[in-house]
Design a protein around this nucleic acid. Sequence first.
RNA 1: GGCGGGGUAGCUCAGUUGGUUAGAGCGUCGGAUUCAUAACCCGGAGGUCACGAGUUCAAUUCUCGUUCCCGCUACCA
Length: 679
Amino acid sequence: MDKKFKRTLVTTALPYANGPVHIGHLAGVYVPADIYTRYLRLKGEDVIMIGGSDEHGVPITIKAKKEGITPQDVVDRYHNIIKKSFAEFGISFDIYSRTTSEIHKKTASDFFRKLYDNGIFIEKTTAQYYDEEAGQFLADRYILGTCPHCKNEHAYGDQCEACGTSLNATDLINPKSTISGSIPVMRDTKHWYLPLDKYESFLRQWILEEHKEWKTNVYGQCKSWLDMGLQPRAVSRDLDWGVPVPVDGADGKVLYVWFDAPIGYISNTKELLPDKWELYWKDKETKMVHFIGKDNIVFHCIVFPAMLKAEGSYILPENVPANEFLNLEGDKISTSRNWAVWLHEYLQEFPGKQDVLRYVLTANAPETKDNDFTWRDFQARNNNELVAILGNFINRSFVLTHKYFNGKVPSCGTLTDYDNSTLEDFRSVKTEMENYIDNYRFRDALREAMNLARIGNKYLADTEPWKVAKSDMGRVAAILNIALQISANLAIAFEPFLPFTAAKLRDMLNMPEAEWTKLGSASILKDGAEIHQPELLFEKIEDTVVEAQIKKLQDTKAANETELHKTSPIRENIEFEDFTKLDIRVGKILECQKVPKTDKLLQFKIEDGLDTRTIISGIAKYYTPEALVGKQVCFIANLAPRKLKGIESQGMILSAEDADGRLVVITPAGDVTPGSEVK
RNA sequence: GGCGGGGUAGCUCAGUUGGUUAGAGCGUCGGAUUCAUAACCCGGAGGUCACGAGUUCAAUUCUCGUUCCCGCUACCA
């Protein structure tokens, strides 16, 4: 799109306030967004960058319950950590607010109400678990029961953490409310749905036809969703933590967190600019850009635009430059496994080194595919690039100027052909960088900036002012003038990427303002202007420092291993009668085949002594059908039948689960008659 | 299983609307140099562009199949 815009609205994915921020968040969203915003500001454009914490949703209420504090306590804690660390790291939000703010509650509520009044939503009544004692509906996470898969008695309604299986609340055996401990009952509840299907043709046209320039990963995923066909999505939940549904008779219902969260972008803009926020959200000449990670593509490209379109008065994003994921030392970053480099810890352990991390995360940003962050790479990029190329060039320019010209910018006089070709080289950097940044290619833009320093180093190496000084000081003056002009250019070029370093460098150069328009100019510094003594911009990072970080991660890994291999405690005793209710038998596998269109399911035909029966079992990852035919297995014969992928499964084959999750079927040690009871 | 993204030099990654010698940074080897944080500068080596088939005068690039990694989605009685 070659449209001309008057202003830019940059939004950054709202971090979920149930944990601190890590390098994956930074590389995927906040560093690129900050670079983009700083760049536009430097060009003098009208731009605002919006951020905030996402503070609603079930996981936060669970965490609060676990720790015996209120949800508000939880979000207060993490919101403050996140906000503080962002500020310290130099992410230059115009506002960093939160979805528990009053202004957000009102904005989200009004937004819902407008769609409601316009008859956009579909109302649907479904049956869900209800806790009669507590008088409320139960989110899946609030229901505990026995996992039908691994028999863990502490499985949640959405997932069994013992075996990793994702569940429906209705799957649980002996469901119990975690709030009151009572047995929940099914009760009808009404919810509102956004009919995404009605916006399908609009989205098709808008994305697939009008935004072919979006990144391939973004465009591809949108196309995938549109081709699958969109379904209405519930926008409300039975929960007491969130924005209440502003409709009569909706007591105990709140906006579903994905509906609530993106509206946070609007609320936070309102909070920042109470009088002119609409300019940024409703004027066609505003360019809205959502910075997100790849896990958020659907919400920002399909769901949120459908919401905005339904409302009617808002603009839609011009681009959604989603990044892929950053791995850490070869493994996926994981909050729950503590496999991460946490921003607040980094800031403590590497004081004053914000720009080093910003540099590394940008130079190796996951712009087109998942990338890997390693501490060795962090060290190498610092020592070989920031110290050796950028820091060193600045230092030698300053040292030479102080040595030969008492710290005053010498006048350049007449230029040689070589001087001119060097000036030519760095003049083009501005256009190159603009081209890259305008297309969200920050890694390439950063490389261009670094090339400026390479040009400088080469220039000094080729012109050898320390030799020329013995014969021709006029020539030395010209050389150092150019070296200092390159330094001044570096102070501008690096400002979006390394704001702390750029500020320090400007200070050393006595250069109060960085103006993007001057990038490429060889006359930024005036003849005779005084420059300060050089300070080192970067320092080497020693082996011991990165080794300590690697050790820390290894310890985490070891702790996770231990945790994984810990045998779970024996559950509470049951009566003999409870045991006799179970009818476990030995059966012979007559036939076995994979259930089509599934990864994990095998379908068995089993001789049970009286007849044959069909059983489905999720062990396809560990057994091929051929390997099991003819074998004898133990199975539960009186488990209520259940349909899976349209096939009725009449029982459950017993397996042992190893620490790594591998399933091994239980077979009798010797052949027995099919149908024999297991006691 | 379906869909999307990816598999390119020792490492981390670019790129190719199909066309001679496929790039960068780092690492490595060699040279030069000493203003500079043992830094900089110059040069070399290093790739059957995941695998197999097809289309084509020509495929790393297009098509199909296989395989591995990541994400979304279905699924574990």
